[in-house]
Design a protein around this nucleic acid. Structure first.
Lengths: 343, 343
DNA sequence: CTGAAAGCGCTTACAG
DNA sequence: CTGAAAGCGCTTACAG
């Protein structure tokens, strides 16, 4: 099907392309009658503006890009959903790219989006990423940039985060509140910042409540898998049979840990209470159901797009952007894995 | 940062825009020396072609769109991952849209993608969708279209599917093989086609093995949630306490069913064996782990893009497209929920 | 109220 | 080997 252009509408009505363009864009310096005719004709011919030409003229693509570490992941797919929902309201489409936690890939994806001339970029950092040249390039190209969840403190741009440290503190404090005296922590790798913050929250809660911080009770996991959760739970029980609580950096690992604890015939929560982090969908569904911290992915996606949209508008007006950071609240979700029966 | 254009490179080297364009695109009717200078200069100035102008000239966006019912879903996010991975290899970017199982939204998303002039569209149908005008519009606009998983048999386009009927047959047969005599089925709603096909596979397996098909043992669920799984398992046990196997249309529901069965102090698999469908990630992780049919999401995404890419190339050459349907294999995954202990 | 003209930045057929 | 010119389809400042 041949695509209809302004020229063809103009020809069929014996008016100029200029007039057709103006009529369809709602300019008011067009005769009402002419306007009506043009709009009707456009509809009749099923006219659709050639978006490529519009992009070229307006220098806008009405498209943004988002780079995330991993699509197949409850938290990140929730973020994507939030972003898409919000973007659609404002007439933006969303291109998704995945870094697979690799810095090299992340750089490449940034390059692709810059070349694509998207109107803005949303990023959650890959674990590997330890330097930020590619993000400075985004800023140099004056493309609005918002980081979310896994952010780089050094990069001056808008950000949406949760307070990992505070949330981890609350999770650990909850274990203390239900009576745990010897609490272990399964932490993530040295990058991203999240794992550090969650560890610090754990440590602070221990310190604040007169329990003795013991670095031997902190296990550093690399891959954050179900299997690692199982492995380290066994290791932990072997090394510290009297442990009575674990704060785990992320739900999936916590589920693995619970599996292993059950297999060793310890009881969750009575022997060992377990709390996770992120409120992964399945946490409510396993037995015992997992207490955790709710990380609001959908809301984070929405807020991230909103910030980006504001920045895009400011840029159009030529106004300066003062980067800000939005901190979203988290909730402690109490389920079976930390509700010790009265004894 | 002002974007560099061909004109500027040309000016700085005293050659024409034409020559610069040719040099950068590797045309061979350019003097080697000139070419070298131009390429060097382009690098030095960090030249990036204005993709909007390129799109307008070439009438291509090097972008495809994908419409899925729900992003936050293990199967569909796997598909997305497969699509992105494959698309990237061929230099295509991917726009994601979500229908929320709504026909109205799906129509709107189709409209958005047509207006965006994507080079091709990938779709998995919303459950609600019962007529296909919007897809005919895609075809009328001569935009390559590939449907996957939830397809419309009536629409003449490329498709990637699994054989739901056969897979369901195998799942049910597996229950029969482990000794089940009275097998229930939790099926999905009347749309999409998948639920019908899975039901037909179940029925055929029952019929083929001289068990009596009993429509009372088939429960039609609407929302396919964990809660529905629990609810219908209780209902089933109440109505048919002697049931000894269930084939459930999808894993999430099966997990709910197992939960309810456990809560009623029946044993899975010894009292009631349960098999799901889709090999959702968590199925391996719960207790007892869930037997299921593996639905290859990543592979489906890859294949769908490959078909689309072929179609895009054919269209460019002006050649005709003969729609074909690729059927991907599924595997029976045997886990604890169907391995009855020897008694 | 209408329209000729310039221009966005590229590609490519064509002339020399 | 090089470049002037046309054109992709739109938008908009400007003249009338």
């Amino acid at each position: 099907m041949k695509q209809i252009t302004l020229k063809e509408i103009a020809a069929s009505l014996n008016v100029s392309v200029t007039t057709v363009s103006k009529a369809l864009k709602g300019y008011k310096d067009v005769n009402e009658e002419t306007k009506k005719l043009i709009i009707q004709k456009a509809k009749e011919l099923n006219y659709k503006p050639n978006i490529f030409a519009v992009n070229l003229r307006t220098k806008e693509s009405k498209t943004i890009g988002i780079i995330i570490p991993e699509v197949v992941h409850h938290f990140f797919s929730s973020v994507i959903k939030g972003v898409i929902a919000q973007a659609e309201k404002k007439g933006y489409l969303v291109i998704i790219l995945q870094s697979n936690e690799s810095k090299e890939l992340e750089k490449k994806q940034v390059e692709l989006l810059i070349n694509k001339r998207v109107d803005g970029i949303l990023v959650s950092l890959a674990n590997e990423t330890n330097s930020y040249e590619h993000f400075y390039e985004i800023l140099q190209n004056e493309i609005p940039l918002v980081m979310f969840d896994k952010i780089a403190k050094l990069v001056k741009c808008n950000k949406v985060i949760i307070n990992d440290q505070k949330a981890a503190y609350n999770a650990t404090k909850h274990l203390i509140d239900v009576g745990c005296k010897k609490i272990a922590h399964f932490r993530g790798p040295h990058l991203p910042q999240n794992s550090i913050d969650r560890f610090l929250g754990y440590k602070k809660a221990i310190d604040d409540h007169y329990l003795t911080y013991n670095s031997k009770l902190v296990y550093l996991l690399e891959k954050m898998t179900f299997k690692e959760g199982e492995y380290f739970a066994r290791k932990l029980i072997n090394e510290h049979p009297d442990v009575d609580g674990i704060f785990v950096n992320t739900d999936l690992v916590a589920v693995g840990a619970i599996k292993a604890i059950n297999d060793l015939d310890f009881n969750v929560p009575n022997d060992i209470a377990v709390i996770g982090f992120s409120n992964w969908f399945m946490s409510a569904v396993i037995s015992p159901s997992l207490s955790t911290i709710n990380q609001p992915g959908f809301e984070m996606g929405k807020q991230a797009f909103k910030l980006l949209f504001k920045e895009i508008k400011l840029k159009k007006k030529g106004e300066e952007i003062k980067p800000k950071t939005i901190e979203l609240g988290t909730d402690l979700i109490i389920r079976e894995s930390t509700q010790k029966s009265v004894s």
